[in-house]
Design a protein around this nucleic acid. Sequence first.
DNA 1: CCTTACATGTAATCCGTTACATGATTAG
DNA 2: CTAATCATGTAACGGATTACATGTAAGG
Lengths: 176, 176
Amino acid sequence: MALEHALLVALSERPAAGLELARRFDRSIGFFWSATHQQIYKVLRRMEDDGWVTAQTIEQSGRPEKREYTVTDVGHKVLADWISTTTPRAGFRSEIAVKMRAASYGDRDALLANIAELIADHRVRQGHYETMSARDYPEPQQLAGHELDTYLVLRGGILQETFWIAWLTEYLEAHA
Amino acid sequence: MALEHALLVALSERPAAGLELARRFDRSIGFFWSATHQQIYKVLRRMEDDGWVTAQTIEQSGRPEKREYTVTDVGHKVLADWISTTTPRAGFRSEIAVKMRAASYGDRDALLANIAELIADHRVRQGHYETMSARDYPEPQQLAGHELDTYLVLRGGILQETFWIAWLTEYLEAHA
DNA sequence: CCTTACATGTAATCCGTTACATGATTAG
DNA sequence: CTAATCATGTAACGGATTACATGTAAGG
């Protein structure tokens, strides 16, 4: 029950149509709350029915029409209320953790190869985040308000990748 | 599509009935793959239908009967095959990250209070893991095989909590 | 007497993924 | 000529949560 709210955040930052939101999700918020376009369309319709957003149909030359969504006063209130409700600690789910524990019941070398790949993946992703951070927030100390928030969320991505690299590396080295 | 496999791991370690599995999940594997008893019962039935496990009804004096499940040869093969398939990088989903980004559209102080609570939560949980680690694995260097695996998964829990504490604290301090 | 623990389940609902569909335009 | 891009969607399915149901026995 939070894709709605993630969409309200994205649309508060800037009104957009479904596909554009899907693309934006792939680049920023989606790092922490992924969603496919199908799901986004479905949820946007429901949000419109509930009066959280309004849609404006925009004609485009040589392209299909798009429906651009804007957050209503109701939507802004829903978002503000949601921010004030307490979020409980998130449950952590990891398939690779289950496999780590299961390694003695299967091919450990295959698992170690899988883990080595994952480490490489996480390094790439961490590099990606760091590039974004250096490019978009060269002077973090100067930031405030919404910009400071987006920066700190990106920092979370970097720290999260650091965690993965550390843990997976520890597993690899213990079995080296 | 992995609760089945988590159950195969748990049942490979030791045969058990549904409720006992639910309890075990709350204490060990469940830290990384949570499940309610309802769901566990449903999945166990399906696994039995598929021949991955067999059930033995056990009468108990003064208590309801229980169905104890054991992994079959087929089940062991399914588990081994699954371990050899590659697991992709897990998508990270965080409601609090969405709220961090949304803070300027609502009551930031309420969010900061929420985050302070979360930090306390994560500290408690980290302490819990560390106690388990010190108690069950006093000499990690000596470990091998399945025990080493369970230790390293627990280490993952500790590192994960470290990540949360670091990130949330960074957010708090940036807004202090 | 009331509550908790034991033990297994059904039903409703929700959230999300995957596959498929349409139809026009632009790039190679 | 083919593939990709823009833009919006439907349909089917599966995983998971929440609420509810049953019945016995021990503990306070």
